[in-house]
Simulated assay, not measured.
Amino acid sequence: MRASVKRRTKTQQDVQPETADVAEDVSDRIRATLAKAISEGALKPGSKILEDAIADHFGVSRTVVRGALGILEHDHLLERKRNRGSFVAAPSIEQAKELFEARRTMERLILELALGRASDADCDRLNAIIDREDAIHHGTDEKAKAELSGEFHIELARISGNGVLTELLEKVVARLALVMTLYEHEHHDDCGTDHHRAILDAVREKDLKRALHLMDEHLADVEGRVRLTQDHGDRHTFEAMLASFSPQ
């Protein structure tokens, strides 16, 4: 009897960490899936997050789902509304301005660090990203175009060697995808590919002054595509609602 009890206790102890690991792995996949859908515009600002559907799809409890949603809320990609659930965040005009300001500041510091540390292999990797951007932007795959969001800039941040700045930039770029969805009035497919190539040339030549000037121009171009007025944001939200509820 005692031996049986000991074996059963040991089995329970073995299963519990495994179950926790599985839940954590699924939680990560839920977060990654929703973050990707948000960044690519598949989930629009104001869209309700259906916890039951997520739980059924991933085969987990709603507790696990809520844990994943809580992290996305902490990253300001989702908003939890009392007694209503979680929704894709809709950044305010003030938040949009602050995000653009934060990005300008970080990108300049990242560029300065990257320029001093970039190897030929790093530059070749950036060039490969730009070539892929060119190929995709000349194609018709809209999903692939959306997936390019910020890739050049995130890779530049990795080259800078500062993990904190890289993580912060990833979060800012993700939130700016929501800003563009809400407030963009002049849509561009190319997302500054020519600018990226010019910036890379300056990085290869170790010309910091020119690289910073080009980055400033590039980010100003991106900001110039949005109209930060409440009416414009409301219109985009309303149009998203019409697209969701209109018969196909």
Rank of each mutant, 00 (worst) to 15 (best):
Glu40Leu: 02
Ser4Asp: 15
Ala146Met: 10
Ala68Val: 02
Asp207Glu: 10
Ala157Pro: 00
Asn162Ala: 11
Arg66Gly: 03
Ala20Glu: 13
Val65His: 03
Ile154Asp: 11
Lys44Ile: 04
Glu217Gly: 15
Arg210Lys: 15
Glu133Tyr: 15
Asp141Asn: 13
His137Ile: 06
Ala32Gly: 06
Lys171Asp: 14
Leu228Asn: 03
Thr140Ser: 15
Ala240Cys: 06
Thr181Arg: 00
Leu113Gln: 14
Ile30Gly: 00
Glu151Asn: 11
Asn127Pro: 00
Gln230Val: 12
Lys6Glu: 15
Val164Ala: 15
Arg125Asp: 09
Lys10Gly: 00
Gly46Met: 01
Ala23Tyr: 08
Glu94Lys: 12
Val65Arg: 01
Phe238Ala: 15
Thr229Cys: 07
Val173Trp: 02
Leu168Ser: 13
Ser244Ile: 02
Gly67Ser: 10
Val173Ile: 15
Glu155Met: 06
Ala198Ser: 10
Ile130Thr: 10
Gly59Trp: 08
Thr105Gly: 04
Val22Gln: 12
Asp131Phe: 07
Leu50Val: 12
Gly41Glu: 05
Ile154Ser: 12
Leu43Arg: 03
Asp231Glu: 15
Arg8Met: 14
His76Met: 07
His138Tyr: 10
Thr9Tyr: 10
His213Arg: 11
Gly85Met: 07
Arg204Met: 05
Arg29Gly: 00
Met180Leu: 13
Leu214Met: 07
Ala32Pro: 00
Leu77Glu: 07
Ala35Thr: 05
Ala35His: 02
Asp207Phe: 04
Arg29His: 10
Arg117Cys: 02
Ile30Trp: 03
Val5Met: 11
Leu178Met: 10
Val60Pro: 01
Gly150Cys: 08
His185Thr: 14
Lys81Glu: 12
Asp141Phe: 03
Phe87Leu: 09
His188Pro: 00
Tyr183Pro: 01
Arg2Glu: 13
Phe87Pro: 01
Glu217Met: 11
Asp122Gly: 02
Leu168Val: 12
Asp28His: 08
Ala68Pro: 01
Lys171His: 13
Met241Ala: 11
Ala32Gln: 11
His218Phe: 06
Ala42Glu: 14
Asp56Ser: 08
Cys191Phe: 14
Lys81Arg: 15
Arg8Tyr: 12
Ala55Gln: 04
Ile93Thr: 08
Leu176Ile: 12
Glu133Met: 11
Asn83Val: 10
Tyr183Thr: 02
Pro247Phe: 08
Gln12Ala: 14
Pro45Asp: 03
